[in-house]
């Protein structure tokens, strides 16, 4: 039974990784950039949620929505100000810029409000223990998981059924051909940053509710792990990020359950190394697609 509880924990944690990984993978898919500031957008989302709940006295859903909207705008600003001018620069220039943006956000926030941590109030979501087939699971885990799943379903709908989603897929496959359809590539890239950042914002609020403690450097480790999750699923592939995130969460939980909880952070990077050696295109990746 202990094992099943650990699995549930792993899936909850994994759904947070998945939400962050989606932003990494969508942005990579469209501009071929590893946006290392993405973990910090997650952190900002967590703080926006915190202030919405404590200062504005809002409940979970409105706080989640505000955090998503603020992060969407924030993500678009980052793209327009920092990345867009480098669209035709070398990849390494863009990557270094992303790391710079990340440091700027972290230290900017520390400058504004200090480095001290905050604690999410523990009554944001009901904390009942539900007894399911002899396993006790907190209602919080279930709510968190449902919210993540709903967000991923909405994302799938947006990407596959809406005009902007089709434009995103077209631009990420062949941006010049997309231009010839009349698609505005700049706006489409902005929309991608907006959606990916909104998901990171949601992940930030969910993380705060689940793990209570938040601080300005909290985005670094989950950001890196979500990046591993994206690579695990196949970078650039949306379902890959979902599965990669969940899988990584479960692996970590199982490592903890096996008594190696000190190793749980290391495991993600062992997974990364193994993937890069044995399956560099990721679980869902096809062999390099060729353009004829």
């Amino acid at each position: 039974m202990e094992l099943i509880q650990q699995l549930v924990n792993g899936i909850s944690l994994g759904s947070i990784y998945a939400l962050i990984a989606l932003g990494y993978t969508m942005v990579y898919g469209i501009v071929k950039l590893i946006n290392f500031a993405h973990g910090d957008v997650f952190m900002v989302g967590s703080f926006v949620g915190f202030y919405s709940i404590t200062v504005l006295d809002l409940s979970f859903i409105p706080a989640l929505l505000i955090s998503m909207i603020v992060c969407a705008i924030f993500g678009v600003l980052i793209e327009r100000i920092a990345y867009k001018p480098l669209r035709n620069a070398t990849r390494i220039a863009a990557l270094i810029t992303a790391i710079g943006v990340s440091l700027l956000i972290e230290n900017g926030l520390i400058y504004i409000r200090g480095a001290q941590p905050e604690a999410y109030p523990n009554d944001v979501l009901p904390m009942d223990k539900l007894d399911i087939l002899g396993v006790s699971i907190s209602s919080q885990s279930i709510l968190i998981l449902s919210v993540s799943i709903i967000l991923m379903i909405i994302l799938q709908f947006v990407v596959h059924k809406t005009k902007i989603g089709k434009a995103m897929r077209a631009v990420s496959f062949d941006s010049e051909a997309a231009t010839l359809m009349g698609i505005n590539v700049n706006n489409t890239i902005s929309a991608t940053f907006a959606i990916g950042s909104a998901l990171a914002g949601a992940a930030g609020v969910i993380f705060g509710i689940y793990y209570i403690k938040i601080e300005p450097l909290m985005g670094v480790l989950p950001g890196l792990k979500a990046f591993v999750a994206a690579v695990l699923g196949g970078i650039g592939i949306i379902p890959g990020a979902m599965v990669g995130g969940l899988l990584l969460g479960v692996i970590e939980a199982l490592v903890s359950a096996a008594g190696y909880s000190l190793w749980r952070d290391g495991v993600a990077f062992i997974v990364l190394i193994l993937i890069l050696i044995f399956l560099p295109q990721g679980l869902f990746g096809k062999n390099k697609r060729e353009k004829v």
């Binding site: 089709k166 077209a170 051909a177 997309a178």
Partner: peptide, 26 residues
């Protein structure tokens, strides 16, 4: 003015119908 580029450049990851819909994007 519509341009059918050299090498076709269809969106390989989308269906025939979706490709045609994208043609009518505007």
């Amino acid at each position: 003015i519509s341009h059918v580029p050299e090498g076709r450049r269809v969106f390989a990851n989308m269906t025939v119908a979706e490709n045609l819909e994208l043609g009518a994007y505007l």
